[in-house]
Design a protein around this nucleic acid. Structure first.
Lengths: 218, 218
DNA sequence: ATTAGTATGGAACATTGTTCTACAAGCCCA
DNA sequence: TGGGCTTGTAGAACAATGTTCCATACTAAT
């Protein structure tokens, strides 16, 4: 559910035209621009150098603002990381939600593929979201917003169960099992623990096998 | 396969009686003890503080040796992390290998449970092995030794296929799918992304469902 | 035009990884 | 037992990073 006081970061990752720092005639960035140029710079450095590249000085330099800006706008590095974390999960949720198909089962399958596509398109964001959780240390609000992507998956599972395409009535448990498997597959693939010649095929086989195992008995 | 020149760390994690630093009468640690006390200290700090607790000065202090010891014995922090990484995978392989049961299928099931037991018994080691891979940056030899646990899983899958308890002939692909799912489940559980009331039951259900999906057609 | 908010530019401090240097302890071999 | 070699120790020093502080100045709102 929604909290009225939470901070929401809906801007897509490295997608919108970033506001240009108005530096041609002054030495200051417009107050209204500082937050966005820091986020844009952080996303760019995350893409290029991974979570390790996200230092306060590097992000500020890339953004063309003073390092103090990270403290003024985000209460420090931690707040910046949390903003990226939420952005990443919002992007993931949107990718999963936009999956389409003629049946609920087909949409679930498409969602699983969209999940993997997101991880492979944005591997460094994925690492920040799942491997640097201790460093990000997200607030309860950030975690709740992040897990809306799980809600999207639960809704898909519910639709499949309603169409008798998945067994059982515990849609949360089924969604958890599906998320576990697909998260595990993309995580291992991202760290190079992938021993088959066609990781995409292996992923697809695993999703199919799991969905067969979760189908109603016939 | 084996390389004759690789460094092997077979000592179990925080299990053996660590050699006591002979400090009562001297200010030096015995040369033969330095490596072990550093590894023991590193394991203890990893258990208590997680990967972030593994600083050169903290490990040396805990071990009662000079920080230079990490550079003399392990070529620096990186070598120490790699030793822990290999130790962790050796422990995991041994846990998976020691799973038993009356049939190949039962052994595979027990191996999946042993895998989760390892991750929950040593969550900080598991995080070092799978979430700090970039920082560990293991050598080819270390990676090869680490992935012997995957070989153990492949062997179990092969045995199941020979007993017609799992379908197909591509045991590597099937093993990859199983590892993906179980790794994903324990990883999400370790970072708190677990929305069911009984994670153990959800894990068991997922493994069962996947094995059903991977069983021969009947 | 004035005032309040806030961006900037370092400096400074603590922590961490790493190297360097000098000294000294201990081990091994003759 | 003694000598020589190996290696542990004790900081110092440097760079990088997170964070706070302070003074200055720019910008936005009234």
């Amino acid at each position: 559910m929604f909290h009225t006081n939470r901070t929401v970061y809906y801007t897509a990752m490295v997608k919108t035209q970033p506001p240009k720092p108005n530096k041609a005639t002054s030495r200051r960035t417009k107050s209204s621009d500082v937050e966005q140029v820091l986020l844009d710079a952080a996303n760019a450095l995350l893409v290029e150098h991974g979570p390790a590249g996200l230092t306060v000085r590097a992000v500020a330099t890339e953004a063309g603002v003073a390092p103090m800006g990270v403290y003024n706008r985000f209460d420090g590095k931690h707040g910046l990381l949390e903003a990226l974390y939420v952005q990443g999960f919002n992007e993931l949720r949107d990718r999963v939600n936009s999956a389409s198909g003629p049946t609920a089962h087909a949409r679930l399958r498409a969602a699983a593929d969209a999940y993997r596509a997101f991880a492979l398109d944005s591997p460094q964001h994925y690492r920040l979201m799942f491997e640097h959780v201790t460093e990000v240390d997200p607030s309860d609000e950030a975690v709740e917003q992040a897990y809306e992507s799980f809600g999207a998956l639960v809704a898909l599972v519910q639709a499949c169960q309603d169409a008798d395409q998945l067994a059982g009535t515990n849609e949360v448990s089924v969604a958890q099992q599906i998320w576990s498997a697909i998260h595990g597959a993309v995580s291992l693939e991202l760290v190079g623990i992938s021993f088959t010649e066609d990781p995409a095929q292996t992923y697809s086989d695993m999703v199919d096998a799991l969905l067969i195992g979760l189908a109603p008995m016939r």
